[in-house]
């Protein structure tokens, strides 16, 4: 693997300084957070690597807060911290569950949620959970701050609503309610860490045994994470039963358009979406009907 002996790395001491530098070198710098995606990408690329803006030192972007029923996570927060966080375990267990599956312990300690979001792999494991949690992203530049709903952030395969002077600084979402349950699933090709062949998250709001609201997001089956809206519709207003969950699982096929790659064929991915939705809903059914 090639050595990046020829690039320079700028290490700002504060967010302000980082935004300043990003503005000054518009389009010339790549942002380095944990580096677990970026370093390999740069070392494998045919083209010359850009200079880097190393934000890894910016501890001000590492936090998890519970604010007025809103959970706020600083973009640099790593997944080990997220999965172990009592706030996340309590108010967004579906994210804690997803976070725990991101690579190995060594990856968890370094991989940031911001990096997972901006790297925009369709198989990124935090994204389905963030989709069903209705997450909002905070983007900051030297000139201002804006907020984007996560579903609006992705415009296509690795196409983002992110300007060259902008940093992702925070991810926020409403805390899960008492009557909501969420589950994450991931199909990898080995028991140890593996990139997802398909993954997904389901969030159900249940009232008196009936599904009041359902949100389902699927990864690795389209250029971006997608909501399985037909599946959601099939569930809403229903009691969970074998029949209902089977129908809901099958309904996801209208939402996905997977491709063949080294980890699996499109046909297999389709079946896995259906079957994982079924298996996950089956487990949720047992929890609800207990």
């Amino acid at each position: 693997m090639k050595s990046l002996s020829y690039i320079d790395v700028f290490t700002p001491r504060s967010l302000e300084e980082a935004l300043e530098l990003l503005d000054k070198h518009r389009g010339e710098l790549a942002v380095l957070a944990g580096g677990t995606d970026l370093i390999i990408q740069l070392r494998k690329a045919q083209q010359k690597a850009p200079n880097l803006l190393n934000i890894y030192m910016l501890d001000e972007l590492r936090y998890i807060k519970h604010d007025n029923e809103i959970i706020k996570i600083g973009a640099l927060t790593d997944f080990a911290t997220i999965t172990e966080s009592p706030i996340i375990q309590r108010h967004a267990p579906v994210l804690a569950e997803a976070a725990a599956t991101i690579g190995s312990v060594q990856i968890l300690n370094k991989a940031s949620i911001g990096g997972n979001i901006v790297n925009a792999s369709p198989a990124a494991d935090s994204l389905p959970a963030l989709y069903v949690l209705n997450a909002t992203l905070t983007l900051r530049s030297k000139t201002g701050t804006r907020k984007v709903a996560i579903e609006q952030f992705y415009k296509g395969y690795k196409k983002l609503d992110l300007q060259s002077g902008e940093l992702l600084t925070e991810v926020s979402f409403p805390a899960m309610k008492q009557n909501q349950i969420g589950m994450f699933f991931k199909h990898g090709l080995r028991q140890g860490d593996a990139i997802s062949v398909v993954n997904g998250a389901i969030l159900l709001e249940v009232l008196n045994g009936y599904v009041k609201d359902a949100r389902i997001a699927l990864g690795a089956v389209a250029p971006t994470v997608v909501r399985a809206t037909e599946s959601e519709k099939t569930l809403i207003g229903q009691r969970l039963s074998e029949d209902v969950i089977l129908k809901a699982a099958q309904a996801c096929l209208t939402s996905i358009s997977p491709i063949d790659d080294v980890r699996g064929s499109a046909a297999y991915r389709k079946e896995m979406c259906v079957n994982y939705l079924y298996m996950t809903l089956w487990q949720m059914m047992r929890m609800v009907n207990l």
């Binding site: 080995r190 028991q191 140890g192 860490d193 593996a194 080294v262």
Partner: peptide, 23 residues
């Protein structure tokens, strides 16, 4: 290993999976 017309596509340990301690 996935080989496409003589070209190996699984050239690393994230695409060519060997057993881990969990397997």
């Amino acid at each position: 290993p996935i080989i496409d017309k003589g070209i190996l596509k699984t050239t690393n340990l994230s695409t060519y999976l060997i057993p881990s301690i969990k397997d």
